[in-house]
């Protein structure tokens, strides 16, 4: 049984679904950020495997994955700094506690 592009895309879709479930259902801001990382990771798997199968010479997808990693590293850094700022203000990392903008 050979492993081809559909197997990799399936793996990536399943990881993305699990990450999406976590990002939508968790109440802790840190868990939501970690689930977002999982989703970004699934997207990167997709980019790298498409790069390997479609443009193996120019490696376009690998560069896309590198820049996607840069953006998600910046995102996790800023997100965790924001979590710390919220914690200092509200003494909690629960998303339910952040309701200042609720009408």
């Amino acid at each position: 049984m050979s492993v081809g592009l559909p197997h990799l895309l399936t793996l990536s879709a399943l990881l993305f679904g699990i990450g999406m479930y976590g990002a939508l259902s968790r109440k802790s801001a840190i868990m939501v950020l970690m689930s977002l990382e999982l989703m970004a990771n699934a997207v990167n798997i997709n980019l790298v495997s498409l790069s390997r199968f479609v443009t193996p010479e120019s490696m376009d997808g690998q560069f896309f994955a590198v820049f996607s990693m840069v953006v998600s590293a910046a995102e996790i850094g800023l997100g965790l700094a924001l979590v710390l700022a919220i914690y200092r203000r509200l003494r909690s990392v629960e998303l339910d506690a952040v309701e200042e903008l609720k009408g």
């Binding site: 559909p6 879709a13 399943l14 679904g17 999406m20 479930y21 939508l24 259902s25 968790r26």
Partner: peptide, 20 residues
């Protein structure tokens, strides 16, 4: 558990899997 989120994520994953 968040059944709504679970259903939404499962729906999206199912659509993507059919597309694959």
């Amino acid at each position: 558990v968040g059944w709504g989120s679970l259903a939404l994520a499962a729906l999206l994953t199912g659509i993507v899997l059919v597309a694959i």
